[in-house]
């Protein structure tokens, strides 16, 4: 297994810069998730690594081996990557067994390897079925087994679970993570689903406008986002106006008093970082809506200066619309200057 090192990679489609001097390091045997909205260039990044898109400049290395540098590209069939596109893309005319064995050189070892792979994804009994006879989840497992069979240098997963329904998605996430860890495969996954990125990845890399803007553990990226957009892309986030005084103290509409002057900017608050206190003498917020999810609820509050914030509270919920409460921020303060 090997790491992936991408330096200053630029990809143009006509006049549009899809990847803009992008750099990213995927450590050996780790699972990195690139997280970004559709159209940010994440699929292009994956396709450039696989060799389907020719970058204009920059380099891609697997370990110390150059795969792509300016005009010289190693063709896709010689990169030894495992590629799992969005819909799985099984070969419709081949059985499960033949799909899995597609990238193997035929021989007595190949049968053994196919069985190993089928065993790994738990599909030994379905080896002779055709793809259309499988459920969506089974098809996806076959796609994973097929990609892993030739023992690829790296695995590339493009929005792997987006076509599956919510429950199946959660099951498969855990299973695929286990398989990739078991096989110690270096994996790059791209997704627009923040939960998927946070649950599966060792490292999350939010992407914006053709660049990777941060690389860190899920916790790091969630707790200390480098920018407003990153904060919003990694989870629910309230962007609240704030003032930072010379002494470094930050005041928000949730604070008791407002300073005369200071630096104007915003603060990012996660809904679970707002604490609601009942029965207090000096309430500072009014409940105007409750969104009930079952396991928890979002309480929408209006502050005296008409700023609206939301607090996540665990069920059961004892509040009702119109209640006067005190809202307090309990988490870290992330201040961003106004540009």
């Amino acid at each position: 297994m090997t790491d992936i090192k991408i330096d200053n990679l630029t990809v143009n489609f006509g006049q549009t810069k899809v990847l803009d001097e992008l750099s990213l390091f995927v450590p050996s045997q780790s699972l990195v998730a690139v997280l970004g909205p559709s159209g940010c260039g994440k699929s292009t990044l994956l396709r450039a690594i696989a060799g389907f898109v020719a970058p204009k400049s920059g380099t891609i290395r697997f370990g110390s081996t150059l795969m792509s540098v300016s005009s010289v590209q190693v063709p896709p069939e010689r990169r030894n990557v495992g590629y799992v596109p969005q819909e799985g893309a099984l070969f419709p005319h081949l059985s499960v067994r033949k799909n899995v064995g597609f990238g193997l050189v035929r021989g007595k070892d190949s049968e053994k390897r196919i069985n190993e792979m089928l065993n790994l994804v738990g599909l030994e009994d379905l080896a002779d079925r055709l793809p259309h006879q499988l459920s969506g989840g089974q098809q996806f497992r076959v796609a994973i087994a097929r990609a892993l069979a030739p023992a690829p240098n790296v695995m590339l997963l493009d929005e792997p679970f987006s076509a599956l329904d919510a429950q199946l998605r959660e099951e498969l996430r855990q299973e695929i993570k286990r398989i990739l860890k078991e096989t110690k495969t270096t994996t790059l996954l791209v997704t627009h689903d923040r939960e998927e990125a946070l649950v599966m990845a060792d490292l999350v890399a939010p992407m914006k406008n053709g660049k990777i803007v941060q690389l860190g553990s899920p916790q790091e990226v969630y707790n200390n986002p480098v920018g407003l957009e990153t904060a919003v892309s990694t989870g629910d986030a309230l962007v609240v106006p704030a003032i930072k005084t010379k002494s470094g103290k930050v005041y928000t509409p949730l604070s008791s008093k407002k300073p005369e002057n200071g630096q104007v900017g915003s603060v990012i608050i996660r809904p679970e970082e707002i604490e609601i206190i009942l029965n207090k003498q000096t309430p500072n917020a009014r409940v105007f809506e409750i969104e009930y999810f079952g396991h928890d609820a979002l309480i929408h509050l209006e502050l005296p200066d008409a700023t609206k914030v939301s607090a996540r509270v665990a069920a059961p919920v004892a509040l009702k619309i119109g209640d006067k409460v005190t809202a307090r921020q309990k988490g870290p303060i992330r201040f961003f200057e106004k540009v």
């Binding site: 696989a50 389907f52 990557v81 969005q86």
Partner: peptide
Amino acid sequence: PQRLDEVSRSLGQTFGQTFKR
């Protein structure tokens, strides 16, 4: 779908082999 070609290429098949298989 073009995806099928790509998967085949990533599994070590040249364009000719992909065409045939």
